[in-house]
Write a protein that binds this DNA or RNA. Sequence first.
DNA 1: TGTCCACAGGAAATACGGGGGT
DNA 2: ACCCCCGTATTTCCTGTGGACA
Length: 415
Amino acid sequence: MERRTVRDRMADRIQHMLQHAVIKDRRFLDDEQLIRAEQLALLEEVFNASVRDTEIEELSSHFAGILRGDHPCHLAIWGKTGTGKTLTLSYFLNLLTELATAKGIQVRHEHLDLSTPQPCFRALNSLACLFKASKRHRKGISLEELMVNIEETLADLAGYLIIFVDEVDNVRRDRDTFLKFLVRRLPQKIPAKLILVFVSNRLNWPDQLDPRVKSFLKLNELVFKPYDAVDLKHILDIRVEKALHSNTVEPGVIEQIAALASHDHGDARKAVALLAKSAYLAEKAGTRITPAVVSEATDELHCDRYVALLRTAPVQLKAAMAGTIEASQRGKGRAVGTGEAYDAYRRFCDRAVLQPLSGRAFGDLLAELDVHSFIRSRVVSHGRRGRTREITLDVPDEMIDRIHAMISMEFDLRG
DNA sequence: TGTCCACAGGAAATACGGGGGT
DNA sequence: ACCCCCGTATTTCCTGTGGACA
């Protein structure tokens, strides 16, 4: 038999891939690659499938007053990540502005995105930037001056001003100053009717507020529930249609993904990520998307999550993880105590030429590993033999070695 | 019943590091 | 260039605790 050339094999492979292509437009599998307008268009289709009906309805009745010249009160919205708060609000506010403008009512809305934690100063600064009342992150300017700038810029804005504060709880430090400005001071200084919309992941953020601000803040509340399986199915269907070639998905698979996703988080972004992963795997294997592919994708996503989390983690956390792994391997799967883990961690630091932290700090690292569910730990008393955490690894076995190898490599150690 | 282990985990002190002011 | 300030990371110090054991 004659040998096939590289060219032949390559051509074959490409031919094969073309015939079995699953993905038509991968941009629709990753929201980050879509521009805002596309996201909103996508969202509109989702809404048309009567998803988020109740929320839209409530939003509408909350803001309906604007069209009659009333002044609706502020609004607080909460819901977990991936429940579409930001997009829904953007969409809704755009629509509202359009409607109002058609009626000759002046409405302006701004989206203040605080998705990364930041101090009061930067939050105010970004707000000022939105109104072009200040240049890029200038420092060395007092809060007072910033506030005055904002007020002056808005001094001749009539009609309604809606400020959509995304992820309010990300204002650490001096949150009260920030909110006091928005809630108490700003409305009195500007002619426009101010409506604030706060969005947060946490249900209880108003609780930890300065009582003076809180009592002043008349709020309407709205909760975004996690998507259920039916909602997710609609969302996924639209993605499938846009992103994948026809007939690449086995029947029932979308239902499966929707059920999985609604069962353990109800997060639309994660559901789409699962679809994307499945599509990639299917394409690589040259098959359609089958239930088997989906469950493989689920595993890989889990795995990816751990690896990604750890890759970006601080060095000490990695070292703590490595130490814990070594301790529990030495203990042959039996739960290890804090002391054992700490010893192993110190030995690891020795090898890795890393300054070990104190036992106290190590305890905190363990707690952190616990919340990310790398480990599972509970405090157990052994009577006179003291109290310890019982630590077990909470990562699938085959991944433990991978993680350990990864960390070792980063510290430039042999296996 | 009291002791005492081996830690947990809170509070305060201290070290560190980056950025702006002078 | 140097210093100061501020926010964060880590350490030090400390009190608390469940239950086996004497």
